[in-house]
Simulated assay, not measured.
Amino acid sequence: MKQPLAYVHPEAKIADNVVIEPFVTIDKNVVIEEGTRIGSNATIMEGTRIGKNCVVFPGAVIGAVPQDLKFRGEKTTVEIGDNTTIRECVTINRGTVAKGKTIIGSNCLLMAYVHVAHDCVIGDNCIIGNATQIAGEVIIDDYAILSGLVAIHQFVHVGAHVMISGGTLVRKDVPPFVKAGREPVSYIGVNSIGLRRREFGNEKIREIQDVYRYLYQKGMNNFNALEAIEAEMPASPERDDIILFVKNSKRGIMRGYFPE
């Protein structure tokens, strides 16, 4: 259903039951799948792909060219999964030649005034709090929760099932299953409440806690801690996810707990 006061480019591919409210602008080379609703004054720019049953609130701008001086007008995209909600005044820039696309997963919630820069990859079931700012080429894995006013440096990797405290400046990689906060960003424990909500049992949570004791509480550097974890703890998907995350970290992982 398209309101007469909305502009939809004739080359845009819009499913029949998409709702488009007044004063929306939808550019060419846009695909919007069935069941999605685009709120008034939203702007959906060239290269945007929006999945099924999404809700885009008024004032959002999706698919604008990157705020990257290296961008030379290459054909790139923003790709948004199904059942994702994008609140008021969110901005999501499309990719550059670096990766070619910016990706937002399915079942996500991006609260008001969030910015997602070029070439970011945000997984499924993520919650991004109000006014959080995510720089270019950031990766955020599934089920991560970022509270309001978080700022993430370019190229940072945030692991799955992470909880980041409001107002945190994230300059280092945040490994999976943890809570992060303080300045500089630091480990403040395993995200046990979030893990229980996602049906991780107590034994599995204790296993994850044991892994992080090696990394953050035994006084070892990361290399020695990983060697000890591999030698002394039985393999499991969670143990191995943490080991691989730390080994593959390009910016280095955040520091350990320290008293305030």
Rank of each mutant, 00 (worst) to 15 (best):
T48D: 03
I92G: 04
I50S: 03
G81A: 11
I103N: 02
E74H: 03
S40E: 08
T77W: 12
D119A: 02
D119L: 00
E74L: 08
I104D: 02
E74W: 06
V55Q: 11
F57Q: 07
I128N: 07
G81C: 11
I134E: 02
Y113P: 02
C54M: 10
A42C: 05
D141S: 15
I92F: 13
S106E: 10
T43L: 13
G100W: 10
K75S: 10
E137I: 03
M45W: 12
N53P: 00
V56A: 10
I104H: 03
Y143A: 02
V78A: 06
V114C: 14
E137F: 09
G39D: 07
T77I: 03
E74T: 05
D82R: 14
A112K: 09
G81L: 14
C108M: 11
K52F: 05
E46M: 11
Q67H: 09
K52S: 06
I134V: 15
H115Y: 14
V114S: 05
A131T: 11
S40D: 01
V65K: 15
I122Y: 04
Y143W: 15
T36L: 12
G73F: 07
A98R: 11
I92W: 10
I92D: 01
E79N: 14
G100S: 13
P58M: 07
G136L: 02
T85P: 00
L109S: 09
G95N: 06
A135T: 01
V116E: 03
C120L: 05
T102K: 00
R87T: 04
E46D: 14
